[in-house]
Amino acid sequence: MDPHAKPDFETPAGREARYGEFVSLLARHDQSIRRFVRSLLPSNQGVDDVMQETALECWKKYESFTPDNAEDAVDEFIRWACVIARYKVLSWQRDSSRDRLVFRESVIERLAQDAMQNLEQRERERKAIETCLGQLDADQRRLVLSVHSPGESIAKIAEETGVKTRRLYSKVNALRKRLLDCVQGRLVEEL
């Protein structure tokens, strides 16, 4: 028997082996898929739902996922899952299109197209972001992180420093822009 042959869905043992393989791929790439989904939704709201539905759908269709060779399987899996995720985002969008701040379909399509081209960049970007964050001084870093830290908030910093919330917030955005430029610079440098 060919040791590289995929276990099939016919026998219970084969099915279980396929399932194990599927779960392992999913576990390894859920962050990338999640990031892709997040790019198409205006907020974190809905990301969990879409991810769940995507996972289920991927498993249902997993039989049809047949990468050409084992080396490509990893990359192909992300792409394949993101195509499914894109459909799930669109159907989520249809259900919640009357809510405030939901992208229209045409915008989601275009963003998905572009986001698909950068799926592998996530780790490099993350490293660049860490480096750039490291270049800020401690107070600036705390401010930028505060927006997303449990137990931290702009309001708290505002109280401590006596600077108005709104001013702090525009400082956060200025820092974010600086980080964006810094990250962009580093990524270009690496190429």
Partner: peptide
């Protein structure tokens, strides 16, 4: 604009991850 939007999302999400991971040390 699309590229910038995707970069910004990535930046903010990564900052979020870093903030959460380092919350204890902050």
């Amino acid at each position: 604009v699309r590229a910038e939007y995707l970069r910004a999302i990535n930046l903010c999400e990564s900052i979020g991850e870093i903030a959460t991971e380092s919350a204890g040390d902050l």
